[in-house]
């Protein structure tokens, strides 16, 4: 599945180029995230603005991606569509990740 990334200071922005993250691509997503985030930035922002749907497998793949980053690197999420945000909220994963309405919002907060 398509992932691209740019690094801005200590933040790496990974953009998902797929309209969904679901059971058919969850493992691929996790693997692609692993290779995309190899490196030593402090914070990764996952830009989900192109993702119009996510299921529990996709959610699990994003959780797995955060674990892959280890304890020293953060994974924040940006640009969630309402249905995507709903899956995070219902599973309380909105308390595990920091969610930002837009990528700009995510980039305007300091890395903590």
């Amino acid at each position: 599945m398509g992932l691209t990334s740019t690094t801005i200071g200590a933040t790496q922005v990974v953009t998902v180029h797929a309209d969904r993250i679901d059971a058919s691509m969850a493992i691929q997503f996790k693997d692609d995230m692993r290779s995309e985030t190899e490196g030593s930035v402090d914070r990764v922002v996952l830009d989900l603005s192109g993702v119009e749907f996510i299921d529990s497998s996709g959610l699990g793949a994003i959780v797995a991606s955060m674990k892959q980053l280890g304890e020293d690197r953060k994974l924040d999420l940006a640009g969630l569509h309402p249905v995507v945000e709903k899956v995070f909220r219902l599973t309380r994963m909105d308390t595990v990740f920091r969610l930002f309405a837009t990528l700009n919002d995510a980039l305007s907060v300091p890395v903590d």
């Binding site: 529990s56 793949a61 959780v63 304890e71």
Partner: peptide, 9 residues
Amino acid sequence: LQNLPEGGF
């Protein structure tokens, strides 16, 4: 972090 569930949702 490492014990977070990845499935069962």
